[in-house]
Each structure stands twice: as structure tokens, then as C-alpha cells.
């Protein structure tokens, strides 16, 4: 069975943290406020386990997601998922508290796509920072729906196969990175907005092997 060692997982988390630092910096420039993105948890699991884990940690029925496929030496799908009820609040935080609700709703999809794009790109670019891998991103998609649909990894895989024409590999060997993420703007305490979500990266077996090989090279040089 495919496994990453504790040290390899630690290294990945550090790469992701660097990616998040870049994402937070881009977002903070967008909103002219400090943005704190933290990763309390990283799990490398099978697709099936990923679905189970997401369902377990999601209290809400309605969710919002930004999905982005990538292809090249690493091929797969990246997802940013967070509670639907808080997405407007996030947009309000990012744009301006004074914007009327109807305008805010119109801007919701566009803003969340931008945010998703910045965060997911930063995660994926963190791979290219330290490793010799190259890949390209497809356009990001905005999705809104029930948790049953959005947390079901197989529905994203079907979309990925449609878009990337990727073939299904040995499902046992395919892995997802599930990252829990806290999003916080650090205004003064009482105005502070906190939002917890997930970043899920779906990697093919081939992509996981490349990733493991790259990690081994980095760690053997230390």
C-alpha cells in the first residue's frame, strides 16, 4: 500500500504552509487587511476515506466549493470547500461591510472563485517551489450544493475524467490530501471573522509516486 513517512508528511505540510503564506499575502492585498490562513490538520488518505472524513467533519447540509483541475507531471483535482451559510459573510469580509445584500449576492460567486483560485493555486505552486515538477491549471469552477454531492469524491473524479480525459487507475493506490483550513481576518477581536473549510487535493497513483520520489530527493539532501 502507498504510504508517506512521517517525515515526508511533515515536509509536505511545511510546503503547504509556505503556499498558504503566499495565498494569505495575496488575499491581504485584495482586502487591505491581515489575513491568517492556518492548517491545523493534514491527512493523506484514500478517496473513500476522504469522503468519510469530510462528511464526519461537516455539520452543514449546504456547501460551497471551488474546484480546479490541474494537469502535467502532476495530474489531479484541487477543491476548496466551506459552509454555504458562511460564504456571504466571507464575501462581506473580503469586500466591504457596507455593501448592500443584493449587490453582495451578485458578487458572491465571482469573489469566491477569486479566493478559491488564489488559495488552490498557492497550494499547488508550493509543490513547484521545492520540486522539479511542472503542471498547468484549468479554469476554476464554482459549485454550490448539498454536502452529499459536494463531499462525494467520486462526483469530482467523474468531472475530472471528463475534463482531463484521465483514466481511472488502481483506486486502492489513489490518494487524497485532506487539509483542514482556518481562514481568519485579524481585525480587532469583535469584528474578527473566522471560517473553517477544507482543501482537498485528489492525486492519481502516478502523481503520488512522482511526489514521493521528489520528497525522497529533497530529504536525502538534508
Amino acid at each position: 500500500m502507498f504510504r508517506l513517512s512521517e517525515l515526508e508528511e511533515d515536509a509536505l505540510k511545511e510546503f503547504f504552509n509556505m503556499g498558504l503564506g503566499m495565498a494569505a499575502n495575496s488575499l491581504s492585498q485584495m482586502v487591505n487587511n491581515e489575513v491568517l490562513l492556518t492548517l491545523p490538520k493534514l491527512k493523506v488518505v484514500t478517496y473513500e476515506e476522504a469522503t468519510r472524513m469530510l462528511v464526519q467533519h461537516s455539520q452543514e447540509e449546504k456547501l460551497v466549493a471551488v474546484r480546479q483541475n490541474f494537469r502535467g507531471e502532476l495530474t489531479g483535482t484541487a477543491l476548496l470547500i466551506f459552509p454555504g451559510s458562511e460564504s456571504l459573510e466571507l464575501v462581506r469580509t473580503l469586500l466591504n461591510d457596507d455593501i448592500p445584500l443584493e449587490v453582495l449576492t451578485e458578487l458572491e460567486q465571482e469573489t469566491l472563485l477569486d479566493v478559491g483560485n488564489v488559495i488552490l493555486n498557492a497550494f499547488l505552486e508550493s509543490f513547484t517551489q521545492m520540486m522539479s515538477v511542472e503542471f498547468e491549471f484549468e479554469a476554476a469552477e464554482y459549485l454550490r450544493g448539498s454536502s452529499r454531492f459536494l463531499l462525494d469524491i467520486s462526483s469530482h473524479l467523474a468531472a475530472q475524467r471528463h475534463s482531463l480525459m484521465a483514466t481511472g487507475g488502481g483506486e486502492d493506490e489513489e490518494r487524497a490530501f485532506v487539509l483542514m483550513m482556518d481562514f481568519k481576518t485579524s481585525d480587532e477581536e469583535q469584528k474578527q471573522h473566522t471560517l473553517s473549510g477544507f482543501v482537498v487535493l485528489l492525486f492519481s497513483h502516478q502523481a503520488m509516486l512522482i511526489l514521493k520520489r521528489e520528497l525522497e530527493v529533497i530529504l536525502s539532501n538534508l
Binding site: M18, G21, M22, N25, L36
Partner: peptide, 9 residues
């Protein structure tokens, strides 16, 4: 030494 590269940090 941090990945948080924002000006405020």
C-alpha cells in the same frame, strides 16, 4: 522566520 509574508507580520 515565517511563511506569513504579510506586511503586518
Amino acid at each position: 522566520v515565517t511563511a506569513n509574508i504579510q506586511e503586518r507580520m
